[in-house]
């Protein structure tokens, strides 16, 4: 494992870049020259970009919480599977493996996504943040602290996903309204039903972050 040279960019530099990419309002991003007139020249089959064959393990480099992990994966492996079972970071949880519960939520370039619905090969060259990445050493980050103080969980299994959803929300909106919080949490199921406390945690986390 090697140290990522982006390690020290965990702060604003990365956030801003992720944000701009995500909003994607840059003028002229759809290159008219490329798309019209329609492409008519014969295509060369060998001109393909990157190929990962189905039956081989391929090497991908995943930047997780500031550390680059070079791992061998099958193209079909999800980022979730690789995080948990290959890299061994089990803070990110598996609930459905089909994008329907949110337990596996991580930030990719600061934006909450389901790691079960993200191929590991798709996560190359992106900045991945998991719940473990919110820790400062052994100290909890502000969202985690808020979850403790407001008792924003019961069994705790959906919790890392909820925390990442809130973290993602707060990286985008500094002090969200109650309705924005509810929306921000609406991609994460909590079967124990701790939603009211999760909302409270998100509000508290916004305060803690602004301190």
């Amino acid at each position: 494992m090697e140290k990522n040279d982006h390690d020290d960019k965990q702060g604003n530099g990365y956030s801003r870049r992720g944000f701009m990419q995500f909003i994607g309002v840059g003028a002229g991003v759809v290159g008219a020259s490329l798309l019209s007139p329609p492409l008519r020249r014969p295509l060369k089959a060998e001109d393909v970009g990157t190929i990962f064959p189905a039956s081989e393990m391929v090497k991908v480099r995943l930047a997780v919480n500031g550390t680059v992990h070079a791992v061998l994966v099958e193209p079909r492996w999800s980022l979730l599977y690789v995080l948990r079972e290959i890299i061994g970071m089990t803070g990110t949880k598996i609930g459905c493996d089909r994008g329907e519960c949110g337990a596996c939520t991580v930030l990719i370039d600061d934006v909450p996504r389901y790691s079960c619905m993200t191929l590991a090969v798709e996560a190359e060259n992106r900045t991945i943040t998991t719940v473990e990445g919110l820790m400062k050493g052994e100290e909890l980050g502000p969202v985690q602290t808020a979850f403790v103080e407001t008792d924003a969980f019961q069994c705790g299994y959906c919790t890392s996903g909820q925390i990442m959803a809130v973290e993602g929300l707060l990286r985008k909106v500094e002090s969200p309204s109650p309705e924005e919080i509810r929306l921000g949490c609406s991609g994460n199921l909590c079967r124990c039903g701790a939603y009211p406390n999760i909302f409270a945690a998100a509000g508290k986390a916004a305060q803690l972050k602004s301190k």
Binding site: G88, M89, T90, G91, I94, M135, F153, G156, T159, S160
Partner: peptide, 13 residues
């Protein structure tokens, strides 16, 4: 539970 260090049975490696 909030730090991701709690090892649930499904986390065992």
């Amino acid at each position: 539970r909030v730090s991701g260090t709690a090892v649930y049975p499904s986390d065992i490696l």
